[in-house]
Design a protein around this nucleic acid. Structure first.
Lengths: 119, 119
DNA sequence: TCATTAGTTCAACACAATTTGAAATATAGT
DNA sequence: ACTATATTTCAAATTGTGTTGAACTAATGA
């Protein structure tokens, strides 16, 4: 992931509606969710508004879509999110592993595998 | 870190100038760097422009400043960056550890301690 | 105190992002 | 072919962000 991709991705998730969509899609997983269901889950926002944000997310490379009958199903692109986390950790790891400590603790908790504390 | 803090932080690093400043300050470490030195490192941008971006970063909670003689020294707030990485990893870890794989691999490489692959 | 250096603040402008509702498109069922 | 459903596209209005240079404030040293 280069600087421009990271900038676009950060811009994508710096909007409340879009951040909520991404988090929703990550939790839902590969199956994804239709534009309409996303709009409903977001409190019944106008369709055109959700469509606008879904398009932004798709252009940012964090989300993808497929048509399924009348619906268009959106889902998170996990490798892209993974790259974004890695981008955020990269610099810090070139000298300051302390930036990663909470992330690593979280990972250890999630996998059940203990991880040594950071120096 | 709550949603609003995350949104503000992502907005802060979704601008090229600000992202470069943050990365610079992370690499430099606790000692920090003066506003003027930052402006120079960024190719001699106008002081008022850099001041604007430094102020945005400070308001976002990612950076702090202290006066030292005539200079004002800016430095990264490492716990804030750590929280931001953790925020990005939180959802994914509630179900989809695959999002964290690259980050973990990077961490293993940086610390020299191998980490088991993600399920 | 005066001049110099280091940064910030301000107002004005330009440009980009967001929201809305109405109109258009695509698919499915009758 | 017709109707209903699902979603996108468009234009217009609004709001937010970033840039600039000039004026301002703070600290240092002669």
């Amino acid at each position: 992931m280069d600087e421009n991709q990271a900038l676009t991705a950060f811009a994508a998730i710096s909007n409340q509606t879009r951040l909520r969509i991404v988090r929703m899609l990550v939790i839902i997983g590969a199956g994804g969710r239709s534009a309409g269901a996303i709009a409903e889950a977001l409190g019944g926002a106008p369709a055109s508004r959700i469509s606008f944000h879904l398009n932004q997310l798709e252009e940012s490379g964090l989300v993808e879509s497929r048509r399924e009958g009348r619906s268009i199903i959106y889902s998170a692109i996990f490798p892209a999110l993974s790259d974004l986390v890695a981008f955020l950790m990269r610099d810090c790891c070139e000298g300051h592993c302390a930036v990663c400590d909470k992330a690593i603790a979280l990972f250890a908790k999630c996998t059940g595998r203990p991880t040594d504390p950071v120096d």
